[in-house]
């Protein structure tokens, strides 16, 4: 054994020798999978029942594993990232939960500065936003990826309604990887947004009992992708999944490269 690679190999073996999978791992996976499947089904059932009754209750509580669904508020902390989830209303109660996003550290993270009305940030201009929203005064800037959001009161510490994440250059790889995984498990759908390729998906379904984050990715060309997200609570203000998708698509279609 004479190379760093060989040494590394041995060190990794030593380092992991003590690790053993828990004896009940398979049971935990089965229980968790069944619980999440049940929850998604109940959520879909609740949505169908709500439409049928043409009534929006203040909240629905559907049992131990179900979701408390409040109406008429905006909210949900700003989503800094997410991963794959299917639409709760779709037939296949697909996967959960690779969302482990930590809270942003405001002391360590650069932002995009004062964006005024927030309609232009980084290298992107926002042509359309749903009515009543204003820039939240919150943003993050990591160079090849940056993001900001909009809500009703412009409070940077408040909840978000719409968030847009832009990926450029090397960062586009991350989007491509995520989309590859979504496609691999047949989540979401390919869409065309003003002649540009896009991908429509509801991410994080079942996370914390939630309905997920309606999201559309759009390829803006020139090694730039944007990820447009509606917060799960804001999404409840729309009549149905089609209405959410329409608005998401309008926001995505309105995105252009800033001069």
């Amino acid at each position: 054994m004479s190379t760093l690679e060989d040494g590394l190999r041995q060190i990794m073996a030593d380092e992991t020798e003590r690790l053993h999978a828990a004896p009940d791992l398979a049971d935990r996976v089965l229980r968790s999978s069944r619980r999440k499947t049940k929850r998604v089904r109940l959520t879909a059932l609740a949505a169908a029942a709500t439409v049928a009754a043409a009534v929006v209750p203040a909240y629905l509580v559907l049992g131990q594993d179900s979701t408390a669904v409040r109406g008429g508020e905006t909210g949900g902390m700003v989503a800094t990232s997410v991963t794959s989830q299917p639409d709760a209303a779709s037939a296949a109660p697909e996967p959960p939960a690779i969302d482990d996003t930590p809270e942003p550290d405001p002391t360590a993270t650069p932002d995009l500065g004062d964006l005024g009305d927030g309609r232009a940030f980084g290298h992107v201009r926002v042509g359309y936003l749903p009515e009543g929203l204003q820039w939240s005064h919150w943003s993050l800037d990591f160079g090849d990826r940056y993001t900001t959001s909009w809500n009703y009161d412009g409070d940077k510490n408040g909840f978000y309604c719409v968030q847009i994440y832009v990926y450029e250059g090397q960062a586009v790889q991350e989007v491509e990887e995520r989309l590859r995984m979504h496609r691999e498990v047949r989540e979401g759908e390919e869409v065309t947004l003003g002649g540009r390729a896009g991908y429509l998906i509801r991410q994080g379904v079942g996370e914390d009992g939630g309905d997920g984050t309606p999201t559309v990715f759009v390829d803006m060309g020139g090694q730039r992708w944007a990820e447009v997200m509606f917060s799960p609570v804001y999404a409840k203000e729309f009549d149905d999944a089609d209405a959410i998708a329409r608005e998401l698509r309008k926001v995505a279609e309105g995105l252009t490269a800033a001069a």
Binding site: L19, L25, V29, S33, K36, P95, I98
Partner: peptide, 23 residues
Amino acid sequence: YLACGDEGEAEDLLQTALERTYR
């Protein structure tokens, strides 16, 4: 564990991957 460098996260990572696999 080697991919993430943390024992607790490795367990979570594995469970998440297995749930996806099970589906």
